[in-house]
Write a protein that binds this DNA or RNA. Structure first.
Lengths: 245, 245
DNA sequence: CAGGAGCTTTGATCTGCGTCAACGTGAACT
DNA sequence: AGTTCACGTTGACGCAGATCAAAGCTCCTG
């Protein structure tokens, strides 16, 4: 079927949830120290996924969800004719695989955009722990709900925004997520190609490229290939609210 | 704030989950009779929502999710400038309000498209019962996951399909859902306007209207105002696969 | 049953983004 | 240092769907 990195059993608990610096962004958010110790039992396998490799594919049996420890992913759905809809970009602390719960098969592909490492969370066990730890149960529900809200945001992008609004919203969203992870919100490297951005935003790569150039001409950002510097956050935000009728 | 129908305490258990004819579509799906009896304790308020009224609004505090007992809803997000993105249409047996879990505020509006009745499911209590009834917990997770998968489908509609493909997909989706509820999959009344369909599909109402007319000219459907008759299901399906490059 | 409001249909025209094409750029090889 | 290849930029042109406009249909209300 498909090449899959060998699962990696944890040699120690040094990197267990309780010690992980992502714990306040990730699934263990808001758990007490005692509860956190319980959670350390849950995550006992980690998996390395090299750039370009699939973490899972559409149609794969669903058994686990994944928390990104390091790296960057995209999820996409492919049509028979080869067209691709990128449904999201995920970074450290975010959860992958929630789509598989409903049918017990994954319904999209998850592909690493850089060398990455994920914590494998066996779903049946997560449900067991959730029944014991109310805070975990509740937080997991929040994670799923957040994904639904995020999807609604993407629908708005795709349904009612024009090209430049979409790209501005995209940049601002990345910016915030980098900030939340302690990185610069104004200067970062894109991990995805123009084509992937376009596929996410419902645009062609040429349109994405032109919009980047336009933003640069207007002094909103500085772009050099994948390197982005945001010079005028408010200017970008204004693009979102200043919508022509 | 906003007008709200008075909650309706159940006078009897005649319409409790265990007796409800939607139980195999709705939250109680797959529960044992004993578990079903437990669930009857959970749903003790029902609410009537007249056509055009809001079940909840964006910004309202989140306390409950809702199972549609009868009727038809839309959910939407409004932009300051008045533009609307319809994020979904919901019918009997489907669950509303999952978006509110993440922030404890609703992030969209839910509006009845016909006089409707919903079962109010206090969310904190649902979580309590979920911790006791594994099958309920698991099914609730499936419901949330299904919503995520559905959203991905909408992204594909909006991101990569052309106008007629979107409308065909929309009609086929409605058709299946009516079938699952024991109604004719080939003849039904739309509860939403052309404008609402357009807003859902990322199209203008004129484009929706034209696409309906074209489908009719091609003998795929018969349309008269809100009444739809599907004459050639396979023809509609073919529209989805026969995508031009 | 007249008048009007809301929705739908249809035609004419416009435009934002897609498409096609050519060229530029940088990183990873030899 | 030169070659290659994937990715990005830019320009010219075309088209799907938006916009503008007008008229028709249905169902309400007085």
């Amino acid at each position: 079927m498909h090449a899959q990195a060998a699962p990696l059993t944890l040699p120690s608990l040094r990197e267990a949830c309780s010690q992980c610096n992502l714990r306040e962004l990730c699934l263990p958010m808001g758990l007490s120290p005692a509860e956190l110790d319980q959670l350390d039992q849950l995550v006992h396998v980690r998996r390395r996924v090299l750039r370009g490799q699939h973490l899972y594919r559409c149609g794969d049996a669903f058994e686990s969800i994944y928390a990104i420890k390091t790296g960057f992913f995209k999820t996409d759905v492919l049509l028979e004719d080869g067209r691709e809809q990128v449904t999201g970009f995920q970074m450290a602390g975010e959860i992958l695989g929630l789509d598989g719960i409903s049918t017990e098969k994954h319904t999209c592909n998850a592909i690493a955009l850089e060398d990455s490492e994920v914590c494998v969370i066996p779903f049946a066990e997560l449900e067991d722990y959730s029944r014991e730890i109310g805070a975990l149960q509740h937080h997991f529900h929040k994670v799923m709900s957040r994904e639904i809200v995020r999807d609604h945001g993407v629908m708005m992008l795709l349904g009612i925004m024009r090209a430049e609004e979409r790209l501005a919203a995209f940049l601002l969203n990345l910016s915030q997520r980098f900030l939340a992870r302690g990185y610069s919100p104004t200067e970062f490297n894109l991990r995805m190609t123009r084509n992937e951005i376009g596929s996410y935003l419902g645009l062609k790569l040429e349109t994405v490229s032109r919009a980047f150039s336009r933003f640069q001409d207007e002094g909103l950002i500085k772009v050099h290939q994948k390197h982005i510097q945001i010079l005028d956050v408010d200017g970008l935000k204004k693009l979102l609210s200043d919508r022509r009728t």
